[in-house]
Every structure is written in C-alpha cells, then in structure tokens.
Simulated scan of single mutants.
Amino acid sequence: MAPETLRRSNLGELKTGSKVNLERAISGEVRFGGHFVQGHVDTIATIESITPDANSLRFSFKMRDVENINYVVEKGFISLDGTSLTVTEVDFDKATFGIMMVAYTQDKVVMATKKVGETINVEVDLTGKLIARQIEALMAQEYAKEDSKLGQMIERIVERKLKDMMK
C-alpha cells in the first residue's frame, strides 16, 4: 500500500480477515441512478453515535481533518467506506455530520457492522472541492491586481476592524 493511502485512510488499522467494501466501477452503457464518487479517500472520520430509527440506523461522525467538513452539505452526498450516502445533518463548528442508513443498505455494506469509536474512510464531494479551488484561484488573481476592488474592500474591512478594536 502506498504511504499516501495509509496517511489518508484507515486501511493501516485493518487486520487479516477484516471486511472491506469492493465494488466495480459501472460501465458507460449502464443506467446511472446514484451519486457520482471516484473511490478516493480524502480523510477518515470517527463514528460518534449509532442510533436506531425504525428500521434505519442514524450515524453521527467527527472528521479527523476538519477542513473537509466544508465540502459536506445537508442532503448532499458523501462516500463512507466506499458507500455513497445522503448527508442528513452537518455541524461545521464541530466538524461533525450524520447520515441515515436504511435496512437494505445495512445488509449490503461493512459500515453497518462497525461500532462507536471506530473509523471510516471518507470521500467528500469532488464538485465542492473543485468549486472551492476555482473561487480561491479567482480571488487570488483579483487580489493581485494593482487596482483590485477586492483588495480595496479587504483594506476597508481591516481598517474598520482595527478602529473597532481601538475603541
């Protein structure tokens, strides 16, 4: 296993006989009805709680690398241990999020067998990461301009904050 994989994932925690989800990619000729994920791992999260809710399980997680919470949105999707799931709640301040796993999915994936305190692999939304990167690049380009409106706005905000602090 590559060092990058071990740094980002929980695969180094696995032991002989540990179960993992393996799923083949779909071909271009197949009807696509799910979420678009790549199968990469951005970080890990720790299971904080598992609560039964009728025949479903409500999971709550805490991100290890808190900056990744910025790419998680309620009713968006996230891939956890290779399973694409809908996000039911997000707390950006605590870097936590939740999902609900229906009975059908519980029977098909490894995550349903995990306990509180265990870790799961997380792939956040690629589209969110791409949009954030483009905004950062555009803002940096704009700020670098000599007569940048963005730079002028930032200077006004900083001046205002400094005045408020001096009061």
Rank of each mutant, 00 (worst) to 15 (best):
94 K>Y: 06
73 V>A: 06
140 A>T: 15
9 S>W: 02
65 D>W: 13
129 K>E: 09
50 I>M: 05
19 K>Q: 09
118 E>R: 05
147 D>I: 15
106 Q>S: 13
108 K>P: 05
94 K>C: 05
127 T>P: 04
43 T>G: 02
49 S>W: 02
4 E>L: 13
91 D>V: 07
87 V>N: 00
108 K>N: 11
110 V>G: 02
49 S>T: 15
144 A>I: 10
39 G>D: 04
92 F>H: 12
49 S>A: 15
53 D>L: 09
65 D>K: 06
160 R>E: 14
73 V>M: 13
158 V>D: 06
114 K>C: 08
23 E>R: 05
17 G>K: 01
48 E>M: 04
88 T>A: 08
98 G>Y: 04
29 E>K: 03
137 A>P: 01
150 L>R: 08
79 S>L: 12
148 S>M: 14
164 D>E: 15
78 I>Q: 00
25 A>W: 00
39 G>L: 01
129 K>Q: 10
135 I>Q: 04
32 F>Q: 07
39 G>P: 04
140 A>S: 14
122 V>E: 01
94 K>A: 14
91 D>T: 12
113 T>L: 14
8 R>Q: 00
126 L>F: 13
142 E>F: 12
28 G>T: 11
78 I>F: 03
127 T>A: 09
160 R>H: 12
104 Y>G: 00
141 Q>S: 14
32 F>C: 13
100 M>P: 02
59 F>D: 03
146 E>I: 14
9 S>H: 05
90 V>T: 04
12 G>T: 12
2 A>Y: 06
144 A>K: 13
117 G>E: 12
24 R>I: 06
165 M>I: 11
143 Y>R: 10
110 V>M: 05
60 S>P: 01
132 A>I: 13
